[in-house]
């Protein structure tokens, strides 16, 4: 009832208030639906939000609760956890692209180090600290080959956004941000994705739909908040979105091609790794971040230059729900 109570608490008495479930992508799916409801003319204004309280669950309970987003009959019995899902993908990735594990660990470390670097500047981030490549690579193993610094934390958090008509937005703010593309796609449990893994088919379909609606190409995206729930997930996401060739995203991170000032600046919030992953809030939090980055209203050291187009990428479960939004500055 958090949806209804939130509306009531804020004084939106008796308005309809829905709850969405798409695991980690819930907030993005809700944002996309809000966008479609306004675009369809059914509502003028929709507030979309997300909230999570996972940090206080403790690791064993949170691990169990999150694992409920995997296949309860055919995959959880083997003891599958979410670090386990992405650890399986990491070994598949190394094997599919013929990258020695020691090299891949370095590349994954580069993703973590960049995440911590920007997250430290982000006043709203969950984990704000310096982590060296050596520390990132040598953290204790959660699910081989992934260590603690490859994994996002269990976070508490909340985020909200107002989706309204172009006309209203221009009245409400001098810096409106337009949703110019949206896509979503689904898949079955992990083993059922056998023909594509380690690529995530639903992401490719979802992002292609978003690019087509926006009339842009991946190369046109200046800033992206993508789903690095685990470091390997960041590589897989950046490739699936079309930013880098398959098997090459790790090198891109190492060369700084994802850093501030590069052509495709990724996770200037610190990403899920450092900014945190409050499951229900993550998708809306990404939208919030892109809007703030486009407006230049983030902390010094992580303000993108000349950013015109931003993108969000959210993955729910083990690839079951994927949702992408493309945002453009409107001033």
């Amino acid at each position: 009832m958090v949806n209804a109570f939130t509306a009531d608490n804020m004084g939106f008495f008796n308005v309809p208030a829905n709850k969405y479930e798409g695991a980690c992508a819930s907030g993005s799916v809700a944002t996309r639906d809000a966008f479609m409801l306004v675009a369809a003319g059914f509502y003028d204004t929709v507030m979309v939000g997300g909230v999570e309280r996972a940090a206080s669950m403790g690791t064993p309970m949170a691990t169990r609760a999150f694992a409920m987003a995997s296949d309860g009959h055919y995959e959880f019995p083997a003891g599958l956890t979410f670090p386990g899902v992405f650890a399986l993908l990491a070994h598949l990735y190394a094997s599919a692209y013929n990258i020695p594990m020691s090299r891949l660990k370095e590349q994954l470390g580069a993703v973590a180090v960049q995440g911590y670097k920007y997250g430290k500047l982000n006043e709203k981030a969950h984990l704000r600290k310096d982590v060296t490549l050596e520390q990132a690579m040598k953290s204790f193993v959660v699910a081989s080959p992934l260590g603690l610094h490859d994994c996002c934390p269990f976070s508490d958090g909340a985020a909200a956004a107002i989706i309204t008509t172009e006309e209203n937005a221009k009245k409400l703010t001098k810096k409106p941000v337009y949703i110019i593309g949206a896509g979503q796609a689904s898949s079955g449990p992990m083993a059922s994705q056998q023909d594509y893994l380690p690529r995530i088919r639903a992401r490719e379909l979802s992002s292609q739909r978003a690019y087509a609606m926006a009339g842009i190409k991946p190369q046109d995206v200046n800033i992206c908040e993508l789903h690095d729930c685990f470091t390997i997930a960041g590589l897989i996401a950046a490739e699936g979105l079309g930013f880098f060739d398959y098997g090459k995203a790790g090198e891109a991170w190492e060369k700084g091609l994802t850093a501030l000032g590069s052509k495709t600046q990724i996770n200037l919030s610190g990403g899920l790794k450092s900014k945190g992953h409050p499951i229900g809030a993550t998708g809306v939090g990404q939208v919030y971040e892109i809007v703030k980055q486009l407006r230049g209203e983030v902390e010094a050291g992580r303000i993108p230059e000349n950013a015109r187009i931003g993108m969000t990428d959210t993955l729910g479960g083990d690839g079951g729900t994927l949702c992408n939004l493309i945002l453009q500055r409107g001033w």
Partner: peptide, 10 residues
């Protein structure tokens, strides 16, 4: 693929 899990669910 494979993974060895060191942090398990409740």
């Amino acid at each position: 693929s494979f993974t060895t899990i060191f942090v398990a669910a409740e």
